[in-house]
Design a protein around this nucleic acid. Structure first.
Lengths: 354, 354
DNA sequence: AACGTTTCATGAATCGTTTCATCAGAGGGC
DNA sequence: GCCCTCTGATGAAACGATTCATGAAACGTT
């Protein structure tokens, strides 16, 4: 900037005013300055600007796992909302580790981000929650925390999924839930239970499986249900990844979906409409979550107000993975299932290439 | 920092030396300073430090589409490699737009990142390539560019995929390629052609479809092949997303995979082993790409050297989507395919939830 | 006692911006 | 000619860290 100033024969102050489009600058000088800027290919140093302005025009986003398609979508949504608002975004990935998460949080603070959006991995009461900058939690909410929250109406979604299956005639259900300490998981489960108990249905203990939201939990859940030998005709999964894993396990066990067993997922990630059968699932509007979160973080509530809580509507998308009740899952010990329970490893060959 | 200094009764210089663990500081003073730091919950301002040090300990990564599972994995790999090297990562998403990409590039430069890793959307000769900081291109390489490159051995992968199918007995192939201006797409195609021409096989024009790497290109490709009416028995896709889309289209057209038609993908994204049938595909080691890229960017070549090029080996993972040749794709006009060509829209219902 | 070394602490300059107080000059009104 | 106002440009002081030259004390050696 100093170089630009000397080249244009003005002071740095004037260059600054040209760059920022402030008034009170002689048109002739302005063009001289612009010329110098072009010639020197000058670009303002955002770090110095941040230091002086004490705002970085940057938001931080911390997510548990970028590899999860749901969060990948969330990143996209938040980034474009932030961009629209004139902010840039730093994404950090905690890899489901509380420690990494805390590290990222601190680093983002050190980086002077103007606000933070986070989808926490863990509930930590003593999380070093940045009181200094606005902060909103998405998807999952922290217990006893004072941060604003935006999430989908997980409970209503769960209820709708359950009601849909009940309406199709199902009576014996299996449920795959997420990590119990996450509110998303609890809310979805509560929704399932709501919908089922309205029809006086209870789910027996062995037909509940608590895992994480990933593919393998779906497979593990189904393995457990088969062990239980109760032959449920429908599976309520708490994420599409779980549902796809469950689907995989059903097929491996020789169970036809939806003819024998119905499955419903949650989230509506892109691949949900590509698997066979296409997944019936609860779709949430990720772009709405992203833009509301950015809204909240950028328009902080006045000090005294209570924490804000935005709950966004979801919808049920009925595709091909649900139908009238069939024969249900097989029991362990059936030759059919015993023979084909986990063929994954055995059927995969890996060939190095010279 | 000044506050810490006055509270501990020392100068800011001393505080700085304590914080950075520099020698020549009296143990007694040091403990006073540490106490003050704790009491004031002082955290160093990374922005000021960057300004002074002229390095941010930060790397930038620009990718075309975070929603693509391949890039999501890449982000994870690069981030953990960067973290291991003591750097943090800013990820930017160009959403497949050259303009956004340029914007992000500039913004990262303004942010004084110490190095840049990019998977460019477009080949722009006059891309404002940052000569000022080290920069490496991953996955795709720019034509005529001077940046270092790390990528998988796409050509060998393509060849292996083709040879695998030839070996199974296939003679009539269809190929789905990626955007022709991307070197990844060209290399994979060249590999397919290598493998096929070794067996004296040529692919007729109507059985080549050039799309992007996403799901829908796979579906569109199969639609075109069916129109062509040549009944190929195997499909070589240039990405797993394409392969999954193609698989979807086959199933919708009543074609059994792999009984009627074999499909092989490329990348080995996580969901590739979950769809039915599990995808035979070329697996690349994304974590290797990530760590090599970080290596290169952090250890810049001396000025005079030629551009470096790292090509990583791939392997062929044989799963369930390939088998001996079957009846092949149906022709357009077959009642079977006509009736069931695009049922997607018709079979999906969306229910709002009160 | 004079001198040289070593060990620590200090203060000031610096990084590249923004912004505020100041000031020079032009123009108008009397 | 004097005073006032207004426009536009300047220089210097921040912002929060690092670092370098300087200097003060302590200690050995001669």
């Amino acid at each position: 900037m100093k170089d630009v100033a000397t080249r244009a024969g003005v002071s740095v102050g004037t260059v600054s005013r040209v760059v920022n489009g402030l008034p009170n600058v002689d048109p002739q000088l302005e063009s001289r300055v612009r010329k110098a800027i072009d010639e020197l290919a000058y670009r303002p140093n955002a770090v110095a600007r941040t230091l002086r302005l004490r705002r970085s025009l940057t938001l931080g986003l911390v997510i548990p796992d970028i590899t999860n398609p749901y969060f990948a979508e969330l990143v996209g949504a938040v980034e474009s909302a932030a961009l629209d608002a004139g902010y840039r975004l730093i994404v950090a990935n905690s890899m489901d580790s509380a420690e990494t998460e805390g590290m990222h949080l601190g680093a983002l603070l050190d980086y002077q981000v103007d606000g933070m959006i986070l989808a926490p991995t863990v509930v930590t009461e003593h999380m070093p929650m940045p009181v200094t900058i606005p902060c909103v939690v998405v998807d999952r909410s922290l217990i006893g925390d004072r941060a604003d929250v935006v999430s989908s109406d997980n409970r209503a979604g769960g209820r709708a999924a359950a009601e849909h299956l009940v309406q199709l005639g199902h009576r014996l259900f299996a449920i795959i839930t997420g990590p119990p300490h996450l509110s998303v998981a609890r809310d979805r489960l509560a929704g399932f239970v709501d919908g089922l108990s309205a029809a006086k249905i209870r789910v027996p203990e062995p037909l509940m499986y608590a895992g994480s939201f990933d593919y393998s939990s779906g497979e593990e859940g189904v393995a457990q249900f088969i062990q239980a030998g109760l032959a449920p005709t429908a599976i309520l999964a708490s994420s599409d990844q779980q549902a796809i894993g469950a689907l995989r396990a059903c097929i491996d066990a020789g169970v036809a979906v939806p003819a024998d067993v119905s499955i419903v997922g949650f989230d509506d990630i892109p691949v949900a409409s590509l698997v066979t059968p296409r997944l019936t699932t609860v779709t949430q509007s990720i772009s709405a979550i992203g833009s509301r979160a950015v809204d909240l973080v950028l328009k902080p509530r006045g000090g005294a107000h209570r924490r804000r809580r935005v709950v966004l509507p979801v919808s049920l998308t009925v595709r091909e993975s649900t139908a009238k009740p069939g024969t249900g899952l097989p029991s362990a010990g059936t030759s059919r299932s015993r023979r084909r329970t986990r063929p994954t490893k055995s059927k995969e060959e890996r060939h190095a290439i010279a």
